[in-house]
Design a protein around this nucleic acid. Sequence first.
DNA 1: CTGTTAGCGCATTCAA
DNA 2: TTGAATGCGCTAACAG
Lengths: 346, 346
Amino acid sequence: MGVTIYQVARAAGVSPSTVSNVLNGRDGRMLPETRSRVVRAMQDLGYRPNHAARQLRTGRASAIGLVVPSVANPFWGAFAQRVEAAALTHGQHVLLCNSERDPDRERAYVDELWAEGLRAIVLCTSLPSLDHLADKISAGLRLVAFDRTAQLGDPDQVINISIDNVLGTKMATQHLLDLGHRRIAFISGSLGSINRKERHRGFVEAAAAAKLGDGAITWAADDDDFADLDAAALGRAAVAELLQRPEELRPTAVLTINDMTALGVCAGARTAGLTPGRDLSVIGFDDILLAELAWPPLTTIRQPLDAMATAAVDYLRADPDGAVTAPSVLIRPELVTRDSTGPATA
Amino acid sequence: MGVTIYQVARAAGVSPSTVSNVLNGRDGRMLPETRSRVVRAMQDLGYRPNHAARQLRTGRASAIGLVVPSVANPFWGAFAQRVEAAALTHGQHVLLCNSERDPDRERAYVDELWAEGLRAIVLCTSLPSLDHLADKISAGLRLVAFDRTAQLGDPDQVINISIDNVLGTKMATQHLLDLGHRRIAFISGSLGSINRKERHRGFVEAAAAAKLGDGAITWAADDDDFADLDAAALGRAAVAELLQRPEELRPTAVLTINDMTALGVCAGARTAGLTPGRDLSVIGFDDILLAELAWPPLTTIRQPLDAMATAAVDYLRADPDGAVTAPSVLIRPELVTRDSTGPATA
DNA sequence: CTGTTAGCGCATTCAA
DNA sequence: TTGAATGCGCTAACAG
């Protein structure tokens, strides 16, 4: 069924090990002429390397493992699409895993991928600690932690790729302040994960700098009542509660942990008879495809996913022996102004 | 690094081949007692089968290949999440491929997966013909064609899983008729793919049965100006054009090829100063997560994704030697009534 | 009912 | 600079 290096070797008049050397870029061990003869033979015969055999021999698989909370979430779906595209440019495949934000599941996936020989994993995690991966990492696992900034005590060699969350919510808060809002709510699920804490911090700091005082309202779910896909429901619930407050305590603008929650807030506001963008300003985070499609189109903080996905795959492929020069990549967010935010009216 | 069947065999006091037999469910070839001894040894040693070795030996990989247009599209993201979940219950992994609706890319992916030993593929395709896969299928490829109904001349052994598209748009059209609408537009990208043709047919037939005559308007993009992710832009463009028509030719209700397009229609209607659900009824297709979140919440035809994904994975795992008793699974759509459709006012 | 054995395709010593 | 030989972990004859 498949062409083997033996057939290639015979066709090129060399030994199998020479073909193997060509395959593995050990060009120094042969004459350029020999090399080109081998390459030609591979093309003529339509040779394709057998990944299973290579993996059996080396113990390493070439695919990239991708662990996301859930590709059903449009943000992660978009990210997964870009990771796959970036991997494809290197001829690598992507193994898809949905952790559903369950830490046990997340760990089990990484264990499983490791046991299967995968040595390159993009882990989209909100876990504060990566200690449980330290042994694998020192044993050769290339791990990109995505959407999570570097933490003290992280294993060396872990590469963190994330937006600058603090800056992002600062920009969002500032935008609202510039529009004249003085009572602003930050809405989020439980503040357990790193990036949520950071986004919250950006809000708190920007609000403090503007001396908002009690005008800075934090609404965070206590525990994990809301799963990943319930972000919208969370927004709905939060806004329903906030709008019941007496007018002098009621926010005129809302900043959410992500776009899905913002969409929920918009829906909740409408249920309460308010028009988002006019009676209540709403700003999201992520800039998912649907942010632009919502009514009103959602002002949000964009995460440049293309750049992030490409960076992730590049690091995974970097020379394993090379020094990791950039242990952490902090990407700059962008404010995208659309119609869901407007001047303060109250 | 790994425990092998030899170690298990030694621990259980049997030969490696007996362990292999246990692994492969050939229970008939050993005493129950022997079997349990082996199982115990596997647990004690923490044995995990080496997929690469197994694949090298058998030529078959155990992962499932999933080819979707793009997981960045919320519908396909949701589907991918469910396929992965279904595969996980069998301990199988999912290899993710985004075809971006490029037929060449789609074919290249299938070739690649096949060459890598994958023998189970879920192919979400709009291609009318599957002839190019016939040879692989007869050579043992298990292929589930998703979102595509069976066609005359399809290779045997292909399993088609799809909703009943004709019924779906009939239900949608009927819903609009029941609300009193007499000028209804069907909006879609080019009608090249099977399921689009079918959805269109459902609309045409229901409209004809209601003697709508010129009141049944088909708006379909000529060629593929709009890629998968531009569905919303397509809806916007279509509605902008339709609303410019003289009043007696202007639709009072719109039925779209999918929810993303419907969301675009809603946005376009608002741009034109109309309120969806009041001035223009809009009904989508799919029931993606965001349909409920839109404003107004979108009436739509639901595709029961869970059932569809489970069916796909089950068929992939069915006994390869068993007769394929259900070459085609036609799933019943459900009308989900929300606020984007209302009585005809014009 | 259980054990022995011979590769699957490749990478990698070690010799030449 | 190249070649011959070995084994990664497993399955499937086949022999016992």
